[in-house]
Simulated assay, not measured.
Amino acid sequence: MTIVRAYLRASTTDQDANRAKRQLQDFAEQHGFAIATYYSENASGSTLERPELMRLLSEAGAGDILLVEQIDRLARLNQDDWQQLKQLINAKGLKIVSPELPTSHALLNESQGFTSAVMQAVNGMLLDLLAATARKDYEDRRRRQVQGIEKAKQLGKFKGRQEDTKKQNAVKAMLKSGHSYNEIIESVSCSRALVAKVSKKIKEDQNSVAT
């Protein structure tokens, strides 16, 4: 029996890693599968230091599906790290499937033989291409960001990253009203990490007043 394990990732704590959950659910249902487990985290795709991804790899078995929204959710790694991740995935016998990669959809079926082998080979080449493209996009954006910051500094306009106080205030109000984390995440469109951050700040403020 094929087990589908969905991996969801966002780069920062201000982003919602679960944003693509509904899309992956719909994709799985369209292909006659149910997602068994979700692994969600806020971490950079440019590093292998991702606890939830490593947990997925440790829990997965041969033939399981590693489902991702896009390949860049899985990897924006340099070549060496991408090869290392692929070795870990291949050693576990996992199949990478993504809605954006039509050749991977055939891997949802347990068919064997020549056709299956060809599709896996083609899929592997496209995975390498998409991973390389994701890395280039990451490096290009980082370079533009550095250039933009340098120009802003020269003009005396650089203030650093600004927190979204409006969103934080909305989270704070809902927490004080007794809403659950899931209700807040859905209503405010924020990450669980942001809700936890605001909740911690509320408790710190309360403790400060008490003392």
Rank of each mutant, 00 (worst) to 15 (best):
N169A: 15
G63C: 13
D80C: 08
A173K: 08
E139A: 15
R9Y: 14
H179S: 09
Q145G: 13
K95H: 11
N109P: 05
I89G: 00
K203G: 03
L155I: 03
N18F: 05
A134H: 03
G61L: 09
S104Q: 04
L53S: 03
L130Q: 01
L88V: 01
H105S: 02
Q147N: 12
A152T: 09
D205P: 02
Q83V: 13
S116M: 08
W82G: 06
N182I: 12
L48S: 05
N123P: 06
N42Y: 01
L85G: 04
T133L: 08
S46M: 02
F158Q: 03
K201L: 09
D205G: 07
R22L: 11
K159R: 03
E110K: 14
R19K: 09
D26H: 12
D26T: 13
T165H: 14
S189T: 08
Q25K: 05
A6R: 07
D80G: 15
A34P: 08
N109K: 07
A210L: 08
L88G: 01
L129M: 15
G93I: 00
G32S: 00
A91H: 03
R55E: 04
D26M: 10
I185N: 00
R55V: 01
N182W: 12
S58V: 04
T37R: 04
D64K: 09
K166Q: 11
E150A: 14
K201N: 12
Q15V: 06
A196F: 06
H179Y: 14
S199P: 02
